[in-house]
Structures are given as C-alpha cells and as structure tokens.
C-alpha cells in the first residue's frame, strides 16, 4: 500500500482474539457511511481500469461489458469532467478502444484516481479496505465475474482477473510487506481460482466473503453498508436529496451523477428487501431512478424522496 499500511501482520492475532470479543465487537469506522460518494467513484474507476486492461489484453474479453462501462462512467462523469475534461476524455477513448487525444494523461486511470479520491481519505486503511470489499463483492466485481465464468461466459474471466489485480494492489499485493496470514492466503486462493476450471459459481464469493470479514477486523471498519438496512435506506435517501438539490439549482450533471450513485446503492443494498417488505415504495423508487422517467425532474424527485422516506421507515426496526 502507498500509505498507512493495513498492518495485516496483525491479522492472525486479531482473528484469534476475535471470538472472545465477538459479542461486544463493533467497528470504529464506517467508511461507506463517511465517504459513500468517494467509494462509489473509486470502485467505478477501478472497474473501468480493469476493463481497459482486460480489453488491451484481449479486445473480445469486454465486448459484452459496454453497458457496465456506461454505468460506471455515469458515477464519475460529472466530477471527473469538472476536474479534468482531458482525463475523462482519455478514459472514454480507451473504453471505446480508441487512442486518447494528444496531451491526455498517459495513465488516465491513475490520473483520475488522484483527482477523484480525497487525498486525506484515499490512503487510509478503512477506505482501502472498503474499496477492496466493493471490488470483491459488488455487482460487476470479482465474485460476480467468477459466477459468470462458471455460468458459461468465459470472457468474464479476464475482467474478473484484472479486478482481482486491482484488489491486490489496493491491499498491497500478494506477499507484500504488509500482507500476511489469512488475507494473503485468501487472495492467493482467488488467484488460483481464476486460473482454474470453473465448476462452482459461488466459489469466489465463498472466499471473498470471509476475506472481507477479515478486512473488517484488520481495518476496524464496517464494510457492509447494508448491514443496517434502515441506515442503508437513509444513505440512499441522503444521496438522492443531494442529487435532487443539484438538479433544482440547475446543476444537471452533478445531479445525475449523485442520483446514479444513489441508485447503485439502492440496487445493491435495499431493492430486494423493498420488493418484499414495501413493494409500493420499491416500485416507485425503481421507476423514479429510471432516466427520463418523467419530463419534470422536480416531480420525479418528489416521488423518489417521498418513497425513499417511506422505505427508510419500513426498513428501520
């Protein structure tokens, strides 16, 4: 890692001590609660970087991933475009398989990384652990990539493998000075898995889940923003309010970006539960998140925020 090592050397000791403390243990940090936008954007950028690397190695590998790339770009387009239009343009060119314009950053992913993530946050152990967790477990991540491989989509192997490289870099790399014990072993098992014949689509998640659990202990961070469903609904509501406020003040690009981030969290954390426990609110939210759901953004926002408030109530015990 670049800074503030996760001190994974403590992993074995902490893991052993954990059961005795288990009943009382709560984590000191909640990175998804503290930095939901930065984490969503960092994860999107890493997936984009992995997609570019996979395409460079095999242009056919990511042919079916264009819609995913669009979805990830939507999470960073406004922020990155405001900070550095050249960097955004270079990323878009590379995703399209084209050469970046002259004068563009040589490594636009690295450049975007520095532009998007707050420097005082991006190097911290909780942030890096959360970013690794997102890349391992979120939609479009390592575990899902393996599922697709096992379900007959061999082209997903390259992308999943590149995402795993990103996780290794974020956590310091296999065999890195600050990576040891169970965490290193789990990363090595994921490496070996991606080099093996696919049998069980759940196998990568079966490794990734305990790895994230270990990272929680090591970084003293809650890495599952959906653990508290009421809190997750509040997170989506807060981000949606930001998006709607931006739309109301005429900042359409930032508004759309915030709403795209809110939608990503909604889909990952609460959509399934709302479908069962509060189906009317769930349907309203899903419809309101659809682009061009209505010609009147204010009306759509009213419906969205109202339904999200109802969702938060329904999901709070």
């Amino acid at each position: 890692m670049r800074a503030d090592p996760l001190s994974l050397v403590l992993a074995a000791g902490l893991a052993c001590a954990a059961p005795a403390l288990a009943a009382e243990r709560q984590f000191a940090n909640a990175p998804f609660e503290s930095h939901p936008v930065a984490l969503a954007q960092a994860a999107a950028l890493e997936r984009i970087g992995a997609r570019i690397r996979a395409a460079e190695a095999d242009p056919d590998a990511t042919a079916s991933e264009e819609s995913d790339a669009d979805g990830d770009l939507a999470l960073i387009r406004a922020s990155l475009g405001a900070a550095s239009p050249a960097t955004l343009g270079a990323l878009e060119s590379l995703l399209d398989g084209a050469e970046p314009a002259p004068g563009a950053p040589k490594d636009p992913v690295a450049a975007a990384r520095d532009l998007l993530a707050p420097p005082d946050v991006a190097g911290t152990a909780p942030f890096r652990a959360a970013l690794a967790a997102a890349l391992l477990l979120d939609e479009g991540g390592v575990a899902e990539g393996w599922e697709e491989v096992a379900e007959g989509e061999p082209e997903a192997r390259a992308l999943g493998g590149e995402e795993l490289r990103s996780v290794e870099r974020i956590l310091g790399g296999p065999g890195g000075d600050d990576l040891s014990g169970e965490a290193a072993e789990m990363l090595a098992r994921l490496d070996a898995l991606f080099a093996s014949e696919a049998v069980n689509p759940e196998e990568a998640e079966g490794i990734a889940q305990p790895l994230v659990g270990l990272l929680e202990v090591i970084s003293d961070s809650d890495l599952y923003p959906g653990r508290d469903l009421g809190g997750a609904a509040a997170l989506v509501l807060g981000l949606s309010r930001q998006g709607c406020a931006a739309l109301a003040r005429g900042d359409g690009a930032i508004g759309a970006e915030r709403l795209a981030i809110a939608r990503r969290y909604h889909d990952a954390l609460i959509a399934d539960t709302l479908g069962l426990m509060a189906p009317e609110a769930g349907a309203t939210i899903s419809a309101a998140f659809e682009p061009r759901a209505t010609d009147d953004p204010a009306e759509a926002c009213d419906a969205l925020l109202g339904a999200l408030a109802a969702a938060r109530t329904a999901l709070t015990p």
Binding site: A18, P19, A22, A23, R25, F27, G213, V217
Partner: peptide, 29 residues
C-alpha cells in the same frame, strides 16, 4: 449479537432448547 465478525451460518438447539449452537463459518468457531 454474536459480533459483527462472527459469520454465523447453521444453528441447532440441544434437546432441551436451553442451548443454541451456532456454526461460525467464516471464523472457524
């Protein structure tokens, strides 16, 4: 609460119902 790092999966009671045993799949406990 078993702790956020407990990873409970399968569980079963003893015949009296007084004790509940819970496998911690991710923690080998």
């Amino acid at each position: 609460s078993l702790g956020l790092d407990s990873r409970p999966v399968e569980l079963n009671l003893d015949p009296s119902g007084g004790r509940l045993y819970v496998a911690g799949g991710g923690t080998s406990a």
